[in-house]
Design a protein around this nucleic acid. Structure first.
Lengths: 192, 192
DNA sequence: AGTCGATCCTAGCACCGCTAGACAAGTGAG
DNA sequence: CTCACTTGTCTAGCGGTGCTAGGATCGACT
């Protein structure tokens, strides 16, 4: 019995290694550089081993996305719980969101940009993704304002943040005024 | 002389054919399906011909992006010029923007999502891109509000629209409430 | 009419995601 | 202790990708 357990442990450990290595490689050189061959070489196994853990490259991206979403949710909660009033919380939320996207661009892409084969806004949406949205909802429902559904408000605010994050990183927006754009967004959208 | 002219004309015609075919193929089956082999087959030339017009696939995407940006600018101007007051103009602008993204997803991706090798927010940004931003700016500077730079306001509003467009199409947002999200955005961001 | 230059295509490179089938190593039974 | 068998891993290969070198062909000028 304990032999089987050991093997399972080793297998789980290797799976973590795959995900961590994929993430590392993606952050270092972009997702284009994350090929099954390079990934296999880095974990010091042959290519087919990857396919005994994941159905394909998509699923590996999906695994990185889930891990990242959990981290993001934690970061958002940590930032908002340190603030006293709703207004400060929203600002902290927005800043933390954009900072996460900037510091973990590959992970952010895995979550929101790439196809990781994950379901969104459905019943079978994985827990970490639902939880990340919940973290946004918790703070934003305080400043939704009258006559607006908090979920709808959260979606809209989130979309604005997502737009800022992606356009900035893609070089579509001048990076200097990021902070002032956040202030504008919070000033106008949040009803405090 | 006229022989050379004829050849130049034919060459330009073929270049238009390449761009149009790439766009068509991308809208039909997605950019992943736009391979140099398939593209060459559709225009009934061999692969290397593509490389006598464009440096590579990136530049073809870039060409589609420029064409699309010009169309988008025209669509935005047409929609806003048909509205009387600033408030109606902003709503029309937002709706038209999102409609363009929804009806031409591949073109939208070429402009804002994919790497077409284009410069943004710099001096050497191609004219159609600058003009599309100008079209946004024209309408949005009317509703910027006091103490805010119109350019900054336009960037922020644009980012919000971009977020809505991409998240909706990627299945990250439930598609039903799109209109209500637009109303919320206009209500809060535009100072009328 | 013959040369010469432009134009286009065939063939191929190195790489991609993914998989079939050979092979070795570890397990349990006799 | 030996031997069959299962489990795990690897080598090799398939069809695809973007891109390019080098040869063939065809038209224009001398």
């Amino acid at each position: 019995m304990s032999v089987q357990e050991r093997k399972q442990r080793e297998r789980a450990e290797r799976e973590r290694l795959i995900v961590a290595t994929a993430r590392e490689l993606a952050e270092q050189q972009g997702w284009d550089a994350v090929t099954t061959r390079r990934l296999a070489e880095r974990i010091e196994y042959s290519q087919p081993v990857l396919y005994s853990h994941f159905r394909g490259k998509r699923e590996i991206i999906g695994a990185v996305a889930l891990e990242g979403a959990a981290e993001m949710a934690a970061a958002l909660r940590a930032a908002t719980s340190a603030a006293d009033d709703p207004r400060t919380r929203v600002t902290a939320l927005a800043r933390t969101y954009l900072e996460f996207a900037e510091r973990n661009p590959a992970v952010y892409d895995a979550i929101f940009q790439l196809d990781g084969g994950l379901a969104f806004a459905k019943e079978d949406t994985p827990e970490p993704l639902k939880d990340a949205f919940a973290a946004l909802l918790e703070t934003l429902s305080e400043v939704t304002g009258d006559g607006v559904h908090p979920g709808l408000f959260t979606e809209t605010f989130w979309a604005a943040l997502h737009g800022l994050a992606t356009l900035t990183r893609a070089g579509r927006l001048p990076p200097g005024d990021a902070e002032r754009r956040v202030e504008l967004l919070v000033d106008r959208l949040a009803m405090v």
